[in-house]
Each structure stands twice: as C-alpha cells, then as structure tokens.
Design a protein around this nucleic acid. Structure first.
Lengths: 356, 356
DNA sequence: CCCTTGATAGTAACCGTTTTAACATCTGGA
DNA sequence: TCCAGATGTTAAAACGGTTACTATCAAGGG
C-alpha cells in the first residue's frame, strides 16, 4: 500500500475530517465534536459542517476513531459453525442487539477446535471488541475452566468483556458473564410429558460424557424418571453427538441390535430427532403412531417433522449476552453476571399415549 | 474514557509495541518488522523479540495497525438474516475463506430493508473492509442498479471491493464483482426431471414479480415446458415469497379454491416445499404417492422431507466471493469479474412417474 | 468601567502501529 | 588503509481521529 506524502497525489482518496473542516471553514476539532454530538455548538456552525459532510460524502475512519480511544466499536461472537441452526439463531440475536447499540458484529468460527478458539480470541484481543461472546456446548473440565479464566483476564485487560453463552459458569473471581438457559428444567418437563402419557421405556439419544449441554439434559431426564418412580435403565441412554446423522446411526444400530425395547424417544436435540425419525421410517415405524418422540431446541427441523420439543430462547440468549456485556462496560458494576433463561415445551404431534 | 498521560498510572493496560521493544532492548521498528516478518533480521534479535512478546503476552492493536496503512483487515458480509439457512451457508463459506486469508469476518443484517442496507454499507465504509459482500435476492430495477453503482464507487474509494453474491450483474463500468449460480439452468433441469416422469401440470410456487432469484427460476421452468412442448398455463404459477409459511399458504389456498389441477409441484425453494408438504398432508395428500414435488437449494429441510431438489453450492459461493475480491485487491486486474457457478439435481424420494 | 462567566471554537498532544530514509557495523577486495 | 556493498537497526514522520487545555467574545453584576 503506497504511502501518501504531502506532495504526491496518487489518485482520489476518501475525504478526511480535515477536508471537511477546510470545506466548512472550521477547525478539525469542531467537526469531530459536532459529528459525535457530545458538545454544544451553534446551529449555524452545525449546518455548515453537516453540509460539508454531505457534499464530500464523508464517513469517519473506524480505525482512527478506535485508536483515538473513542469507545464503542464492535461485538464479537465465536461459534462452532454458522450453519448450525442453533448457533445461527444465537448469532442473529447478537447481531440484532449489536446493531441496536451501534456496534458491528464480528463472527469467528472454531469448528469446535480449542486451537482455533485460542487463535480467534487473540484476534478479538487485537480488535478490542467491546464484548466477546463464546457460545456453545463444551467439555467442562478443569482445563476448560483454566483456559476461560485466562481468556477472561486477557480480554478484560484490553477492555473486552467475555461472555459465556450456554456454557457452564466459572468461579466468581473470573471476570466473565454467563448467560445460560435451563437445560435441566426443560428436559425434566418434556420427560414428564412423555411419562404422563404413560411411557416408561424412554430412549435417550445423544449422551456425551463430559459435555455440558447433553449432561444437563440427561440430568433432567433422570430427575423426571425418579420423580415418576420409573426405574432408571442406563441401557436406555445412547451415546452420540448432537448431529443429524448421529441420530440416524443411533436408532439404526439400536433396532439392528435386537427387538425394540422402548415406546418413546427423547432426542438430545431436534437434529438428532430428525435423523432418528428417518431411521425409524426406514424400519417401517411411524411417529407418533408406533413410537412417540420429543426433541430439544425448537429449531427449524422441529416444525417440519411435527416434533413436540423444548423451546430454547436462542435469539434472546444472544441479545441478552450483548446487553449485559455493554451494561457492564458502561460501568454498571451491579449488572447481573449470571443469567438463566427459562425454557418451555412446545406441543406438536409426535407423542401418543402409551396404552400398555 | 480517561486519557493516559506520561505520569499517571491508571491501573494495568495491555502492553504495546513500545513495551515489547524496551523489554527486548531493541527499537520499536525492529519489533514491528520482526512481527510482520516482511524484513530480514538476525536470528538472535528475532529470538529476543519473540521472547519479549511471549513474556508480555503482547498482541498488536488492530486499530493502530489498520490506521498505519497495513492493508488486510476484514471482510464484510451483508445478508437479510443470519437464521435463514441460505444466507447462513453463504456466510459460512465467507467466514471460512476469510479466516484462511487471515481476515476476520464482519456480519451485517438488513432484514431486506434498503435503508438498513445503506446504513450497513456506510459502516463498512468506515471500517475499510477489504471486501464487502452483498448477498441475496433483490428487486433488480433501475433504482437498484443505480444504488449499487454508488455503493461500488464509494467503497472502491475506501479501498473496498464490492461483491454481489447471487445478485444480477451491473454494467461493466461499475467496479463490482459478481458471483452467481445457475438458477435458470437448475430450474430447467429439475423441471425436465418432472416432465420426463410424465408430469404435465406442474404447479410453480413462489413467483415474485421483479425479484431476481424467483424470476430466473421461473424462466428455467418455462423454458423446460417449452422444450417438452407442454403448453404453458400461467394459472399454474402462484405468487408468494420464499418462506415456509408462504408455501403452506399457497397450497392451502389452491386446494381450497377448487379441485386439484396439478400432479406435481415445483417449489421455488426448499422452505416453500416444506410448507407446501405440510399443507398437502393436512389434506391427506402424500408425497410422492399422491403428488410429486421438487424444490431448489438443497438445504437442511430438503433431507428431512426427502425432497428431490437442485443443489446450490452456497458455501462455494461465499468462498469464491472472498477469493476473487482479495485477488482483485492484490492487483491482479485480470481476475474474473463475473462468475457463474453450476447447479445440479439431487435425487431423493419425492417424485413418482405420472401414469395418465 | 472592570471583571467574571458561559457559550463556542481553536490548538495541539496524544492513541499504537507501519514505513521511509538514514545511520551504524561488518565484510572483503584493491 | 580505505571504500563499496551488504546487513541490521534506529529515529521520526505519517495514518485520521479525539479531547484536554486554551482563547475569544458577548452579556451581566458590582
């Protein structure tokens, strides 16, 4: 990129605040102050400046503005993948609220790789984003907690607020905000829905040791079983990840392994449910006539397959994350540091009473 | 935000390149050059500097870097909504390629509102993004062309390359890159698929006067009809937008209006197909036994409802957009300015031969 | 009539990098 | 011994804003 010296004229260039000042016949400081609107100014001066801005089609240079210490710039969201409807929904919420607060929204994806997560965090540190929002399911072990602690402190030093979205909280000494939703409560409610319809043998699809989201959901499942005094059979909990093809695989393998020993399925999320449904149909089993099924998330596939599921306020999750982070930054130290959003059941047509 | 003078020490602050230089006992310039790696340096100096960087946990300030004229910063994508799987898929491609090229990815949403589109473009102008990618369906009238021309020129002045993704091209004098996919060809192919299965009365769902995407698709539909010498009945083209509930509405209204006068449906996209399918099922019509159906896009809902559809290379669209824009910026003036990516049919289980 | 005060506008010192041009410092050959 | 040519490093000038401090001017009180 060629450097521009006082004498050379390398073609047209975007107009600067200096151009505007000269054009309007005022000082640079005046233009800056009028544009930021944080200072009294005579209406006549103001009009002159605005006219100059319009005539020169001036827009400020975000880099210069950021450097000079004017606060407010951007909000960053870091997700596994943009395609996944779950992340997309949260991202939409973040984007909406960020725009509302005059910030732009930076997106980073990690594909679930901690290495890339670190690299992305470093980038955000460089960027001095107001907030850095980390979303999604994760192994909640000590290594994780330590890593997040480091992130939080490094980001805080750069003026960024770390927000964990749908992830388990850290210790109170870590400068991070946590915005969660009620996985366990939702799982409890929807399992109860199946139990009260008379189902006793409920297959849980998508257990994953150590991962926060499936663990919370399975906890709700078990709690509901216990509350209904239904014996808990560990063999009904099937291991798998939260993807469509895994739902397909789990049901397929189960049906291949022996006679069907369940009357209902609790899919760890709606994607699993969609895959499971396909496997069932290939075996001639219809939902809800032959098997009842429920899911979790209430994302697009749910409506398509008429799935009774747990609604998760994804967008609100994203909006809340941004809102809290910016409130905290505005110095409202009393702002909440841990929010738990509620979930609720959405009844469609995938559950029938089980008449033994 | 308090200003920091030489004497005051307002708590810890992120370390700067000056700190690193002092810590390593070299000059600021040396640190800068070693970090950017664009200059020879003695291994010993290099080691000293890298150690200082590590010990101080230094990361560069992106604003300062951007200001000082180091090129490469970010790539911006502007979409209607992040939730829509179509936009999400393109965004994923953009994100992937941007990360590969060391840029970060800024996302803006417009909700289809030209006013917000303008505001977002201005923001990107401030940001000096390397590329600004505008994606999606749009009314392709003269006002649109004029607006895009202005955007392209203003962005070019700020060093940004405008890319239109899945939008119709502008005149050759406009400094914009266009990355399209073959809507008409795909529509032609999949309509032929229905025609060769013996269907003659094919309902097209989702016509929308003036909008580029549905117009191209309907053009392919008509061309295929003509090629098969099947009379074109305008009454078979139903107006509606590209949303799920519109698909539902269109079929519902059609079936309520009178006896069924079609044997197959060409849904303008997969979302419409999903909605249409629901409406059909509520009337006791199954796919493909009673009605054949095809869609367009090959996005998530398609697999769930076993839909034969046209595959659109969404991610590649995004990747190509970024790649071309950055190539162009690197001065490769000969880089393509208009790319048309191919589409192809994906056969699932939603079409049966029509035996008259 | 002088001095204070409030409302505006201007001057200039940063913000943290990159990069140009200049300055050592070492080779090795004449 | 001295110089040409590499090498490696440095000082300082941008980059385009923001803002603390200062200056000007008109009005009003003593």
């Amino acid at each position: 990129m060629a450097r521009r010296t006082a004498s050379d004229d390398g073609g047209p260039r975007p107009s600067t605040i200096r151009d505007v000042a000269k054009h309007a016949g005022v000082s640079v400081a005046t233009v800056s102050r009028i544009l930021s609107g944080t200072y009294p100014s005579a209406p006549a001066t103001r009009a002159k400046v605005m006219r100059a801005v319009r005539e020169l089609d001036y827009v400020a240079n975000a880099h210069a503005r950021g450097l000079a210490g004017a606060s407010s710039s951007s909000v960053a969201i870091i997700v596994n993948s943009v395609i996944s409807p779950h992340y997309a929904a949260v991202a939409q919420g973040v984007q909406t609220q960020a725009a509302l607060e005059g910030r732009l929204c930076i997106v980073g994806t990690t594909g679930g790789d901690p290495e890339r997560e670190l690299a992305t965090i470093q980038l955000m540190r460089e960027e001095h984003a107001d907030a850095v929002i980390l979303v999604g399911n994760v192994v909640a072990d000590d290594a994780y907690r330590e890593r997040m602690g480091e992130y939080a402190r490094a980001l805080a030093l750069a003026g960024s607020q770390l927000v964990l979205c749908g992830r388990p909280p850290l210790g109170p000494e870590v400068p991070a905000i946590v915005v969660e939703y009620d996985n366990t409560g939702g799982a409890y409610a929807i399992t109860s829905h199946l139990l009260s319809a008379g189902h006793q043998r409920i297959l849980f699809l998508g257990r994953r040791e150590g991962y926060s989201t499936p663990e919370s959901r399975i906890a709700g499942y078990r709690a509901a079983l216990a509350a209904y005094r239904v014996p808990h059979d560990p063999a009904l909990e099937v291991d798998g990840t939260m993807e469509r093809h895994e739902g397909y695989r789990m049901v397929r393998e189960r049906l291949d392994a022996g006679p069907r020993d369940f009357t209902a399925i609790f899919a760890g999320n709606d994607l699993i449910a969609a895959g499971a449904r396909q496997a069932l149909r290939e075996r001639g089993l219809r939902i809800p006539d032959d098997v009842s099924m429920v899911g979790f998330d209430d994302l697009p596939p749910a409506a398509d397959i008429d799935l009774t599921t747990v609604h998760v306020p994804h967008e609100e999750l994203g909006r809340t994350a941004v809102r809290l982070a910016l409130e905290r930054e505005r110095g409202r130290a009393g702002a909440a540091e841990h929010v738990l959003l509620g979930t609720h059941i959405v009844v469609r047509d995938s559950v029938r009473p089980n008449i033994p």
